[in-house]
């Protein structure tokens, strides 16, 4: 077992790097996530989803792109503003956490998340979202989506590694997530 101090270091050190060049829409991340967090069908919760931008023409070439989406752990999480009972907070390791005991299931945070990555767990009656597999990371594992990513699009890397990986690519970072592409000039969100 790791000590509490080590744990925090492990957490804060690493970020989720999403290489859009490598996503092949295999949906392994989605199902791995559902299994890891016991998000059965009845919970209606899809914390991780792959969005597709269907075939379109650009410069006489056809392009199709896939974007895995999940909570970015925003630096200034807007969902937290909406919560009437302060159940959402940003932990010291940079993860935005929903306290299930405090949550009253009012769904305001869900409607307030502009990225559509928060879900109301119909079974538990509380809000839920990606926690970057905190429990796995604490045990020295990577998030479930990262382990099972077939294309190698999802990677769990240190900030130093991220700098190297994104140096030559178009990159956009939100919270603890960095998207990169060698094809599209990615757009800063706001």
């Amino acid at each position: 077992m790791q000590s509490a101090k080590e744990r925090i270091e492990v957490m804060s050190d690493k970020v989720l790097f999403i290489d859009l060049d490598n996503c092949v829409r295999c949906h392994a991340c989605e199902i791995a996530c559902r299994q890891e967090h016991d998000l059965t069908f009845d919970t209606k919760s899809r914390w991780c989803q792959v969005m597709a931008i269907e075939p379109r023409w650009a410069e006489n070439e056809l392009h199709m792109d896939f974007v895995p989406t999940m909570c970015f752990q925003c630096d200034d999480p807007i969902c937290a503003y909406f919560c009437p009972v302060d159940a959402i907070s940003r932990s010291e390791d940079g993860i935005v956490v929903v306290d299930e005991d405090t949550c009253i299931g009012c769904k305001l945070c869900i409607h307030g998340c502009p990225y559509g990555v928060m879900f109301y767990n119909e079974v538990k009656g509380v809000a839920g979202k990606c926690d970057l597999c905190t429990s796995r990371i604490q045990h020295g594992l990577e998030p479930a989506c990262v382990q099972h990513c077939i294309g190698g699009a999802l990677q769990f890397v240190t900030r130093e590694e991220l700098t190297v990986l994104t140096a030559q690519k178009h990159t956009v970072s939100v919270g603890t997530v960095s998207y990169a592409s060698s094809k599209w000039k990615l757009t800063e969100l706001f």
Partner: peptide
């Protein structure tokens, strides 16, 4: 709706400016 928010996010992120750079060689 929730699903469209994620979708719109993806569309907005990728955008439509095609500016190819050489693929950085790296295996996850």
């Amino acid at each position: 709706c929730q699903k469209c928010r994620a979708h719109v996010f993806a569309e907005r992120l990728i955008g439509n400016r095609l500016e190819k750079v050489e693929r950085f060689q790296h295996i996850a």
